[in-house]
Each structure stands twice: as structure tokens, then as C-alpha cells.
Write a protein that binds this DNA or RNA. Structure first.
Lengths: 227, 227
DNA sequence: TCGCCGTTGATTGGATCCAGTATTGCCGAA
DNA sequence: TTCGGCAATACTGGATCCAATCAACGGCGA
């Protein structure tokens, strides 16, 4: 499904390279939602002409990370509360399936690593670190799945919501909610026992609870007045 | 979610126009899976230069309809049995959700039309007509859903499997299986009664049974020796 | 003073040209 | 006869140039 720590691949066209670099920049928060991406700027910054940049923008548009308006320009996609809830509802239904694909092929070292990540998250008090660990934990639990579309779909959903997860996390932490960590531990145990049904249930509940929590914080989606 | 009978929109770039035209051609079966798409050919055929064609190919690649290999070329995507089963499993889980979004906003005329389509399918004995009716029936049942990503996801899954549904349908018909029609009738009734849970269950079972049936016919996926 | 309209500048879209790469066919050697 | 290597060709990828479109600004009129 494309490893989480994908290093920029030497293969592929310049357009794909630029797309990878832009994607990384967007996910890391360098570009905020609503930020304009000018073709010439991007071309200079990534050492290419505008042609591959346009290709990259098409790729990222298809992934939902960028919004293109004909004859006008490209912006980093914004999410509304409704859209975000929708994506979480989709995740509730398909991530358990992906997990089911993955569990049988997860090795002992990988499972131990998941345990380590779950523990590390409990100890972490840095937002950015928590985000990285959480992503690594969940995508890591899917890593053994040899799917051709499902894995990519899930990764795209994670990518599209990345910026907003950063915002929620701040809020959740301040509320001192422990259920997230509880879910993670339950999940690791279910994976250890290869209990597919239980793992599905836990994961479903985990995502669902996050969605419900999220609906209580619509303020995260308010347009920042600073364009 | 973008109407089923999308007419080629006047808006948007030439690349999008070419993408729409190529998509229609692929879905109609004019291009078979595995068929090569040469940029210059496509450019001539659609009255544009190679630049918008390359844009179109990127768009269709993102939709999974076209497979691009750097420095080599573009082909209409082929599906393997495993991939197809995967997509059906995804559909089992997300189409019921999409239906749930749609039902509350379906009007009486739309529901009557669904009934009409279900009846027409039972009477139809032409493969191509059946395919069209089936697609119109299911996507029609989702038409009232005002989603921003789920609808497109489902439509893409339908598109990617379109060619292979054409092939199954031939087989199913010859086996004289009536359960498909039974499901359709049950679905319309559940929708009439606005019974969301029942509608979800019926649709889930409908897609699931099709998937299991499909697994019994791996021959559909054999590489045709004629490239 | 406010709103409408035309003009100018900035930015995107498309076409052509050139370079790079893969594939095909051919030739020669085993 | 068959396999390996080399050359020619066809196709894709990228850059530059020109056209088209949108947005911002300023001027004019009410």
C-alpha cells in the first residue's frame, strides 16, 4: 500500500516527483488549507518547468489534496465539517476491512512495534510527535495487507484529513480523554490474538468515537480570516 | 455525486473534456482492457494536442481506468479476480452507507422510477440494456445523496468494474439466477418504507452474493490471447 | 462618495519543438 | 535455428513560446 515513510522514489516522471514533494509539504503543514499554489513558484521551487507541475497538480487534485479551478488556479483543499464527518464514516466501514486483510500477515516484530507505538503515544506530550506516532500506528497495522485499491483509499483519506487531525488533537489533549489510548491497547491485544472480528469492532468504535467527538468541535473548520 | 447521464460539460479545460470523452469510450467498451492508448492518436481523435491528452490520462489513471507506465505508455486498466473481489468487498461496506445518505431525500417519482427499472430488468433479455438499467437503478438509488466524496468513490468503483460486469452478466443470465431481481424488489420496498437498516442489509447481501458468484467464474479474468 | 465599466497586468492553458527512453527488427555468432 | 547484441524508429516526457482568461486597479459617471 505504499509505505508510510515513502522516500521520494527515483523512478517515475518529474511530475510524480513534484507531486510527492508537494504532498509531503502539504501534509507537514507547510502549506495550509486555502493556500494558493502558483505554477511558476512551484516550478522554481522544485527545479522543473510548469508542465510537470501541472501534472503534479492533477495528481494531487485526484487525491483530494488540491482544488483546481480552470483558468484560475490551484489551492490546497479546505475541508468542511460535513465532508470530514463523511470521510470518518467511510473510514469506519473500510478500515476494519483493511485491518482484516492485514492481520493474518503481520509478523511478531511488527506487532511488538505496534505495542511500542501505542505506549509511546501515551507518554508523548508533543502534538506533532503524537500525530506521527498515531499515523504510524494505524497505517502500520495495515502494512501487511496486500491490497491494490483499499490501502490507497485509506491512505488518501488519512492524507485529506491530516491537517484537521492536527487541529483536533490539540483540543482532545486539552480535554484529557484517555479512551483513545484504551482503544489502541485493545486493538493491539486483538491483533495479537488474531481475533479478526474483535479487531474490526474495536477499530470501528475507535474511529466512530473520534468522529462523534469531532462533531463537537466545528470551530476547527471555521475559515481563518487570514486568507 | 455527478449525474449518471453527465453530458460533456462546457466548463473546464480541454484536458477534462478529453478525459470525459475517453472515459465514455472506455465504459462503453470501445476500448477493451489492455488496449494501448497512444497520445498522438487520442489527440487527433479528440481534436487537441498531446498536452491535454496527457492531462486526461493522468485524470483517468487516478480514477483507475488507465494504467500509466513512465516513458512507455498508457493502457486501459486490466482487473484481476483478486482486485475485483476487493472492490466488491469495499462496495459491500460503503454503498449501504451511501444509500443511507440518499433515501431520506428520494422523492416519490424517483422511487417509482426505481420500481420501473427493476421491473424492466426482469423483462430485459439484452445484455447491454440490462447493464444500463442495472447501473441506472443502483446509481439512481444513490442520486439524492448529497455527499462530497462517497458518491464519487462509488461511481469510480462502478466504472472500474464496468467491463467485467458486462462479462459476468452474460454468465449469470445463462444460469437463470433470479435472486438478483428478488434483491432489487426487496430494495425498492425497503426504500419505499424508508427502512434504512433493512435497505442496508438487502444491498449488502446483494453485492455480497454477486461477489461470491463472481469468484466462481475466474475465467472472465483470463488474459485474452489477443493482446 | 459609491458603483460600474474598461483597461492592464498576472497567471493559467495549449501547441510546438526538442531530448530522452523503450521497443522493434535486423544482423551476426554460436 | 536460436539467442544475444546493436541500430533504427516510434513514442513519451519536458521546456519554451504564444494565446486566452481572470483579477485587480483606476477612471468615469451618477
Amino acid at each position: 500500500m505504499g509505505t508510510v515513510t515513502d522516500i521520494i522514489p527515483r523512478t517515475g516522471s518529474a511530475g510524480e516527483r513534484v507531486a510527492n514533494e508537494l504532498r509531503t509539504a502539504i501534509l507537514s503543514g507547510q502549506y495550509a488549507p486555502g493556500a494558493r499554489i502558483r505554477q511558476e513558484d512551484a516550478a522554481d521551487r522544485h527545479g522543473a518547468s510548469r508542465v510537470p507541475v501541472r501534472e503534479a497538480l492533477r495528481i494531487l487534485e485526484a487525491e483530494g489534496l488540491v482544488t483546481l479551478v480552470a483558468n484560475t488556479g490551484a489551492w490546497v483543499s479546505r475541508l468542511g465539517l460535513e465532508e470530514c464527518e463523511e470521510m470518518y464514516q467511510i473510514r469506519e466501514r473500510i478500515e476494519p476491512l483493511l485491518l482484516r486483510y492485514s492481520i493474518p500477515d503481520l509478523g511478531q516484530p511488527e506487532i511488538d512495534h505496534l505495542q511500542y507505538l501505542a505506549d509511546a503515544m501515551e507518554r508523548s506530550d508533543d502534538i506533532e510527535e503524537f500525530l506521527t506516532l498515531d499515523r504510524e500506528f494505524h497505517l502500520g497495522s495495515y502494512a501487511a495487507a496486500r491490497t491494490s485499491v483499499l490501502g490507497d483509499m485509506v491512505e488518501q483519506l488519512w492524507n485529506r484529513t491530516q491537517h484537521y487531525r492536527r487541529a483536533f488533537t490539540r483540543v482532545f489533549r486539552s480535554e484529557g480523554d484517555r479512551s483513545v489510548h484504551h482503544d489502541h491497547q485493545l486493538l493491539v491485544h486483538a491483533i495479537r490474538r488474531s481475533d479478526l472480528d474483535e479487531a474490526e469492532r474495536v477499530l470501528y468504535g475507535h474511529i466512530r468515537r473520534t468522529r462523534l467527538e469531532l462533531a463537537r468541535h466545528p470551530d476547527v473548520f471555521l475559515d481563518p480570516v487570514t486568507n
